[in-house]
Nucleic acid binder design. Structure first.
Length: 278
DNA sequence: ATGTCGGGCTATGCCCGA
């Protein structure tokens, strides 16, 4: 089974490219972020014609997450337990949720499509929200892992954190000043790893960015950032046989500013070593 | 170069978010 994540930056602008890539890359499951539309506006036709079932959580023109799968989808969860909300002038515990997390089970694998808040600037209310959001995500993941020992789960998506210096190649992000590289954000990411989630792509693809800003020739200069990840429980990580960052998807007409990240999983029904398929 | 893209709005440019 091939599972991918992709911040598509508007599915209405990108659906043709998304379907083409899914079919060409033979992807079974795609977690999307920044669909930037309401559920009823999501262009499902091309995906469904290509054999994909689609579940979405889109509230308005901002954020929005979705999962498309060629295998049956069950146990859809809109938002995670304890997910903090956020809205202008509404920063308390009863702030409305944003459409940033969607969970589903596919062929026995729990898959989350996550769009972590950007943070905007150090000290901005959105930055505190980002840290609370990541902390609550870890709490929910830890509770799920305790209740489902050994089970495969992947937290996939745009984490908006560059965990190491090598993951930050955009010179406009300055240590001590900028989001995405601040110690608290990196600690929040490391905390996800400390509860038993593993970046399953990095051991296979140690280099490469997943995002390049549209501005200032960031892609031609390869001044990107590695901020999109697939974090797996041990029961997920043990089945990963290959991984890929689809840099080619940053090229051509109307690309997203992010590229897909995907992994190939061995079947859970046999222990045969699978050949590397990519 | 604040140099690019998305979205909405009531518009044919301006605002917001990334």
């Amino acid at each position: 089974m091939r599972i991918a994540t992709w911040n598509v930056n508007s599915i209405r602008t990108r659906h043709g490219r998304v379907v083409d890539w899914l079919v060409n890359a033979d992807v079974d499951v795609l977690a999307m972020q920044e669909i930037k539309c309401k559920d009823e506006q999501f262009p499902r036709e091309g995906l469904e014609a290509a054999g994909y079932e689609v579940v979405t959580w889109g509230l308005n023109q901002w954020n929005g997450v979705a999962i498309a799968s060629r295998l049956p989808i069950t146990d859809v969860e809109v938002g995670f337990r304890g997910q903090p909300g956020f809205a202008k002038g509404h920063e308390g515990p009863d702030a409305p949720l944003e459409a940033r997390a969607l969970g589903a089970t596919i062929d026995g694998v729990r898959v989350w499509s996550l769009y972590v808040p950007n943070g905007r600037a150090l000290g901005d209310p959105h930055y505190d929200y980002k840290l609370r959001w990541l902390s609550a995500l870890a709490d929910d993941a830890r509770a799920w892992m305790a209740a489902n020992p050994g089970a495969p789960m992947a937290l996939t998506g745009d984490f908006n954190v560059a965990p190491t210096d090598a993951d930050m190649g955009d010179p406009s992000f300055v240590p001590g000043v900028s989001t995405h590289i601040s110690p608290p954000e990196r600690a929040a990411f490391a905390h996800l790893e400390s509860i038993g989630l593993t970046d399953v792509v990095r051991p296979i693809q140690p280099d490469g960015y997943t995002f390049w800003d549209y501005k200032q020739l960031r892609f031609p200069r390869d001044e990107g950032m590695r901020i999109d990840f697939i974090l797996g429980t041990p029961g997920f990580a043990d089945r990963v046989v290959d991984a890929r960052i689809e840099r080619e998807q940053r090229k051509g007409d109307a690309p997203s500013d992010h590229v897909p990240v995907l992994v190939e999983l061995a079947s859970d029904e046999d222990d045969d070593d699978r050949p590397m398929i990519f």
